[in-house]
Design a protein around this nucleic acid. Structure first.
Length: 642
RNA sequence: GCCGACGUAGCUCAGCUGGUAGAGCACUUCACUCGUAAUGAAGGGGUCCCCGGUUCGACUCCGGGCGUCGGCUCCA
């Protein structure tokens, strides 16, 4: 009888009988592996353990040590949750339940369209544990579409019927696969672990509303979020990590460190406190350093302009819902939601030669957008913010070099602030947009080619572009792993046309410039928020709003403390004095909680020697030195390059 | 905008099955004058988010708003 052979990750060959499964392969290698095996990976594809392997395939046995296996059991857990929910609420209609980054969810319609209360989660969780303990096997079967439709129709599972119908329509499938665990059988591509018992720890976290198929106009379902692990210890560690991440929330740190505040009187419009304002100015200085090095000029244009301008720019047609309008006497004005029209008016205020291009005009532009309630989020999603904006007017030939230069500036700037790298996304034409197919095609091509030439990895976001052009976005994540867009580079053939912008070419004729909208950090507010979380409120010395605090040992050293602070400030350092009548220990503690990088203790010894006793948060006590030495060695060492 | 939860002193939070509130920290004052993560004592501070309703009486119950938080959708 003919055997088959598969190749293992170490390159060795494993002889198996014809028709052998992944489980057989694992068993052939050893009983320990047979017990630990969860699934197999062939190439990039994960398969059920019971799926057959073919002659010559390179296979890998997945166990709980494999990161992909975690995704597997989370998907398993989603099925177990659906099983438990249907047991407790037989009338519920289930939709989809995928694994996600750190867990899984299942979207479910409860009877009467009611939302599930969070209080019910423990009950569901308990039922899940029972099914996990019962170690129910996952069993797959493939059945004809008609049979599947009949089954789910009979069960009243309308969402499954819709999913299957769409599979037939979009992919022309003839059969679908179902997975059974216990009494529950779900439409599912798989793969799954051999049985529910492989889930060693499970936790349901929260419920939330979620639109069916992510479509606002459709039914809102109840999304139950949960997570699963291979051990209770891993689950506990995960929950601890979340807890720690919450401590780095910029909203909490922002208040504690005197960076910003929010008030009910101005929802979504942050107030910058003294320390935050210093931080903002330092961030701006880094942006300006890029501007001057890369040949930008800076302008400042009005916050509010007549509505006629917004009709002209296309914002009224495409962005009206997000704008604030103000009636003044007989005229209607709008607060700007974007800075581009102002820049266009500046460009249009004089004649331009092709010799001036690319003309790069930057503006730290404050914009106001009437964001829908419910989307606001600390500094990360606000209604009034400042973009480190710029508009580059250039020829089509210059696009690629400009886009490349912008991407480089973003790389340099993010590296300067301690970010390893951002995720790059390319977004193309949305449904609501201005311009012709040809223009969009040319613009999208230009961006794509620039990215390709730079050798950048990027994700494609079809339909996610701005209404006037496609864009490249730079994304980074916050403390809890949520991704936020920062920098952006958007191509625009529309605005120059609408504003009838032109430059004189070498041929003495008038030509239309191309406009690039670009922001390196995106919004100063959002960037600052992300920066706070990235550094957990403990900024590098050059960026710390207060770099050092002078701590007099007793009241009689207060005057000397003031002298020292004065000297350091004169040298350009940001220094505070804590001259409360408190113990040194107390002042050290408070300084640490404020996350000051340096604490300068001054008592009799230091006062006599004209020195300060330096304590660094990072390095502990550094001994005594003069203020000048401290400034040179520590406080100013990494300051802005400008 | 949608779903859910929440809103008590500057902050973190107790509390009341309906009888107008309390702690710690912070703040003020006094004493202490202190050497690397909390010195002690005393004191001030609240339209219990807002507006209605029920009730003899509402911080508490009900309705509506506003805001915040977690999601969805949307977006820098």
């Amino acid at each position: 009888m003919a055997g088959i052979a598969v190749e293992l990750p170490d390159g060795s060959k494993l002889e198996l009988e014809e028709g052998a499964s992944g489980a057989d392969a694992a068993a052939a290698i050893g009983p320990g592996l047979a017990k630990a095996a969860l699934a197999i990976r062939v190439g990039g594809e994960v398969r059920d353990l019971v799926a057959p392997v073919a002659d010559g395939e390179r296979i890998e046995i997945l166990t709980d040590r494999d990161p992909e296996a975690l995704e597997l059991i989370r998907h398993d857990a989603a099925h177990v949750m659906a099983e438990a929910v249907l047991e407790l609420y037989p009338e519920a209609k289930i939709s989809i339940g995928p694994p996600i980054d750190d867990g899984f969810y299942y979207d479910i319609e409860f009877p009467g369209g009611e939302q599930l209360s969070e209080d019910e989660l423990p009950k569901i969780e308990e039922a899940m544990r029972r099914h996990i303990k019962a170690d129910e096997p996952f069993e797959r079967r493939d059945i004809p579409v008609a049979e599947a439709l009949e089954k789910f129709r009979a069960e009243g599972q309308d969402y499954k019927v819709e999913l299957i119908s769409d599979l037939v329509r979009d992919e022309g499938v003839e059969t679908v696969s179902l997975y059974r665990n216990g009494d529950f059988e779900d439409l599912c591509r798989g793969p799954h672990a051999p049985s529910t018992g492989r889930i060693k720890a499970v936790r349901l976290n929260s419920v939330a509303g979620a639109y069916w198929r992510g479509d606002e106009s459709r039914q809102m379902l109840t999304r139950i979020y949960g997570t699963a692990f291979f051990s209770k210890k891993d689950l506990a560690a995960h929950l601890e990590r979340l807890e720690a991440a919450r401590a780095n929330d910029h909203r909490k740190l922002g208040r504690e460190l005197g960076i910003f505040m929010l008030r009910e009187e101005a929802p979504g419009m942050p107030f910058w406190l003294p320390n935050g304002t210093v931080l903002l100015r330092l961030i701006e200085a880094e942006v300006r350093e890029q501007l001057s090095r890369r040949g930008y000029v800076e302008i400042a244009t009005p916050q509010m302009m007549d509505v006629s301008l917004w009709h002209k720019s296309g914002h009224w047609d495409n962005y009206r819902d997000d704008m604030y309008f103000i009636d003044v006497d007989e005229r209607q004005f709008a607060l700007r939601p974007m800075n581009c029209p102002g820049a266009c008016l500046v460009f249009d205020s004089s004649r331009h030669s092709y010799r001036e291009l690319p003309l790069r005009m930057a503006e730290f532009g404050r914009v106001s957008r009437n964001e829908r309630e419910g989307v606001l989020h600390g500094l990360l999603r606000v209604r009034a913010f400042t973009q480190d904006d710029a508009h580059v007017y250039c020829t089509e030939d210059q696009i690629e070099a400009e886009v490349t230069d912008i991407c480089e500036a973003i790389d340099e700037l993010y590296a300067r602030f301690g970010f390893d790298g951002a995720e790059v996304e390319l977004s193309t034409r949305p449904e609501k947009s201005l311009g012709t197919d040809e223009q969009w095609e040319a613009a999208e091509k230009a961006l794509r080619e620039s990215l390709d030439k730079q050798g950048r990895e990027y994700k494609l976001n079809p339909g996610d572009g701005s209404f006037y052009g496609p864009k490249i976005d730079f994304h980074v994540t916050d403390a809890l792993g949520r991704s936020w867009q920062l920098g952006t580079c958007q191509l625009d053939f529309q605005m120059p046309e609408r504003f009838d912008l032109s430059y004189t070419g070498a041929d003495d004729a008038q030509h239309r410039p191309v406009m690039i909208h670009r922001a390196l950090l995106g919004s100063m507010e959002r960037f600052a928020g992300i920066l706070i979380e990235h550094h957990a409120g403990r900024f590098p010395v050059w960026l710390a709003p207060v770099q050092a605090v002078v701590l007099p040992v007793s009241d009689r050293h207060a005057e000397y403390a003031g002298t020292v602070a004065g000297e350091l400030r004169a040298a350009g350092a940001r220094v505070g004095v804590d001259d409360r009548s408190e113990s040194v220990g107390r002042k050290i503690r408070d300084a640490e909680l404020e996350r000051y990088p340096f604490m300068l203790v001054v008592g009799d010894r230091e006062q006599e020697g004209g020195q300060v006793a330096v304590r660094s948060h990072d390095e502990g006590e550094l001994g005594a030195m003069t203020p000048a030495e401290l400034a040179e060695r520590h406080l100013l060492a990494e300051s802005s390059r400008s």
